[in-house]
Amino acid sequence: MAHTKQTLLERRYSLLGLLLIAPTVLVFCAVIVYPLISAIYLSLFSIYTPTLDGEWVGLQNYATLLAKGEFWYSLRTNLIWTVGTLSLQIVFGIGMALVLHQNIWFRSLARSLILFPYFISTVVAVLVWKWLFNDLYGILNHLMMGAGLIEFPIDYLGSMPNAMVSVILVGAWKYFPFVVIAVLARLQTIPGQLYEAARIDGAGPIARFFDVTLPQLREVLVVIVMLRAIWDFKEFDLIFLLTGGGPVTSTQTLPLLVYKEAFSLNQMGMATAYAVIMMLIMLVFMVLYIRRTRTEDGL
């Protein structure tokens, strides 16, 4: 087919289009593309953090970290944390959204209050949880001993697997409101007639949840899982403040390891190598996840 020549007006529109997207593209390059390339570049050096001086080592950093037990151990910890806290967030989030979707008393108040953990500063939240968990004067141990459930105080943060369970629970508490809000918004758009049709078709409450509600929530859950998986995978402050990665390295996820390499061991090159690997892992997961959900939708 012959290529038709653009008219003057079309060329002017094209030029205008380029001008309009140019600022965004420039900002995107400055704050995302440059740091990314810079990080990949840095990861090929051995760099002393305080001076940022270093020498070219090629892929040596990657070879070292992949051969290190600490990397694989942290990756495993990171996956346990992510899967654990994300599952709890989804389960509690959907459950709470279903409750708040009902015509209960003080519904508006409850809907606002549920956001509280999400809005509160992580530092404050962690501080409060550390008090609650404290093995000497924490209220949790006090109450459980008072109730006769335990004989001796439990060390929630200083021993395993307690520390991991605690971190996962606090993470779930902190971030499940996000799931509640997103799911609640979707629940409100499900046509009521679908439930009525299901009731007439003989579906009980449980069948209605699995046959009407859950399929309708699917799309929003895909987005929630994707976003929350990324955010949880790279979660730093909550874990750092609660356990500092301890006991020893039991709750040391990859972001904590990156921090340790960069600012405790002063190995900036090594740290960026970890960060790049982290990014690749997330990328692989996201691609697999999106693929899978697409095929299930029959698209």
């Binding site: 046509p191 299901a198 007439i200 009980g204």
Partner: peptide, 20 residues
């Protein structure tokens, strides 16, 4: 008697077909 036990069937204005 619950709707599912009344031995009735209903066609809705919006059809209310299960989309998935």
């Amino acid at each position: 008697v619950a709707p599912g036990d009344r031995d009735i069937a209903m066609v809705f204005q919006s059809y209310a077909l299960y989309p998935h």
